[in-house]
Design a protein around this nucleic acid. Structure first.
Lengths: 133, 133
DNA sequence: TCAATAATGAGAACCGTTGTCAAACGGAGG
DNA sequence: CCTCCGTTTGACAACGGTTCTCATTATTGA
């Protein structure tokens, strides 16, 4: 399993984990900090950023960059490698896996002499609800 | 073909196009501005940003976001939809197309009720030269 | 309980990018 | 060729998300 290193449990980290557990969409650090503060939990913005990063490198949360360069976080359901389909309107997200794609990426890269290949793939569209207006 | 709208040809825009035509890797606006300045071409940074954006929306250049949220630009060889395999060390880039992936993305999204699907896919690794140190 | 050390918080600093607005420029008409 | 008008430019301020600083607070092992 993912190694948390020597991280100490703190009130702030717990609140952050709770907040993430309750949301199904990707949210920005600022957004999370705001709702934490709104719900009466005193936490510093820097702390939110720090913990979010730590959780991300430990694989506890997924991070993706929005079009305008903002990082958004989400507690992922599975620890295994997967991708996301995000609704452009409401943010509703579903996780998908596709071995075929992973293999294709590796193959096409290898074909051009590349090794140690990684990739990022994000899919977005209109979810059924939002498409129905 | 791509519509350039009512854009006027200017010395700055031409220099920018030249600079891009000469580079095979993705470069940041600041980087491009620096080398333009270094080579004696007086151009404002804001102008570089503005033109880069305009060229991007006109499909004249490709833009991707680096891991640290910086936008990097590159004159693309083909106007058609494609993806990139970028070397993490030297930035060497090759363009690849893969109908299978496009179809997979659309299919998996549709499967979950999504419509008007779009996607972003970037692949990175070590090119042959850099792998050989 | 105590000392050692990691985590926190408030605010400053950073840095890429965008906005502002007066001056310079390009082009169509005269 | 000259003028007028809308476009583009450039210097610099402003922005916004993220990171850094460092003194203070909390946690842990002894």
């Amino acid at each position: 399993m993912t190694d948390q290193g020597t991280r100490r449990p703190t009130r702030q980290r717990a609140a952050l984990a709770d907040e993430l557990a309750g949301a199904a969409e990707f949210r920005s650090a600022q957004d999370i900090h705001a709702s934490l503060t709104a719900s009466g939990t005193r936490v510093g913005l820097a702390t939110v950023y720090r913990n979010l990063q730590a959780m991300a490198t430990d694989g506890e949360v997924d991070v993706i960059r929005t079009g305008d360069g903002e990082s958004v976080y989400r507690a992922c359901a599975t620890a295994q490698h997967h991708h996301h389909v995000v609704c452009r309107v409401c943010g509703h997200t579903v996780e998908v896996t596709g071995d075929a794609v992973e293999r294709w990426a590796d193959a096409v890269a290898a074909e051009h002499g590349f090794s140690e290949v990684r990739h990022t793939l994000e899919i977005d569209g209109l979810c059924a609800d939002c498409a129905a207006r």
